[in-house]
Amino acid sequence: VVGLAKGLRKVKSAYPLVVAVLPDVPEEHRQILGSQGCIVHEIEPIYPPENQIQFAMAYYVINYSKLRIWNFEEYSKMLYLDADIQDFLNMFFQHVYKPIPLVYNLVLAMLWRHPENVQLEKVKVVHYCAAGSKPWRYTGKETNMDREDIKLLVAKWWDIYNDESLDFKSAEAPSLEGEAFSKPSIMAPCPNRQFHTSQLLLLLES
């Protein structure tokens, strides 16, 4: 997320980065986000229906909680920067949202599955979602991770992350940390069960 925030500053984004976090995201991580100018919102998790839990992997349980973005009524427009549940949202909101083109959401697998559709020099946003592609855990040992284009994109991420000139500069970073959404929800109430995840939801005010 820090890398994303700095990347947005590099291209002189005019809008703040809103980060939705679940209750178990550590305070230390929230402070880091705030120090980089992110607006931190805490949201409550959403669980799959009781009769489907046995079939749901933890990863997909997390994705249900991302539907909370539809309760962010204080924003007239949002740009959602995580494509992991794009098809999930398509089923329910196909007439409400507008998908973004490949150049603004390069899923790395496109590099070897549909290379004819990728113009790497024009790509603006990279989604490091392929196994082994996370820059902070990159080893180059996983399948396809020894490709030169992958190495280039990982190096670009680190260049931005390590660029101190892109750090947020303000006496006090904007933050709504700790403030959970309490507006009437379009979602069903969440059962009171323990839930752990450090996954973050990334949004842009527009």
Results as ranks from 00 to 15, higher is better:
residue 5 A to T: 01
residue 15 Y to R: 13
residue 18 V to D: 11
residue 19 V to N: 05
residue 22 L to C: 06
residue 24 D to R: 11
residue 27 E to T: 12
residue 33 L to R: 00
residue 33 L to E: 00
residue 34 G to P: 00
residue 38 C to M: 00
residue 41 H to T: 10
residue 43 I to M: 05
residue 47 Y to Q: 07
residue 55 F to R: 09
residue 57 M to L: 12
residue 58 A to Q: 15
residue 59 Y to L: 10
residue 64 Y to V: 07
residue 64 Y to H: 12
residue 65 S to Y: 01
residue 67 L to M: 14
residue 70 W to S: 04
residue 70 W to C: 07
residue 72 F to D: 02
residue 81 L to F: 12
residue 81 L to S: 10
residue 82 D to H: 04
residue 85 I to M: 09
residue 85 I to A: 06
residue 90 N to D: 10
residue 92 F to W: 09
residue 94 Q to A: 13
residue 96 V to E: 15
residue 97 Y to F: 06
residue 97 Y to W: 02
residue 98 K to G: 11
residue 99 P to W: 03
residue 106 L to R: 03
residue 113 R to M: 07
residue 117 N to A: 14
residue 123 V to H: 06
residue 124 K to T: 08
residue 125 V to E: 04
residue 126 V to T: 12
residue 127 H to S: 12
residue 131 A to C: 11
residue 137 R to P: 06
residue 139 T to Q: 04
residue 141 K to F: 09
residue 143 T to H: 15
residue 145 M to Y: 01
residue 147 R to H: 03
residue 152 L to C: 02
residue 155 A to P: 01
residue 155 A to C: 02
residue 157 W to K: 05
residue 157 W to S: 09
residue 159 D to T: 07
residue 159 D to G: 03
residue 160 I to Y: 06
residue 162 N to R: 10
residue 176 L to A: 14
residue 178 G to E: 02
residue 178 G to L: 02
residue 187 M to A: 12
residue 192 N to W: 07
residue 194 Q to E: 13
residue 196 H to A: 07
residue 203 L to Y: 08
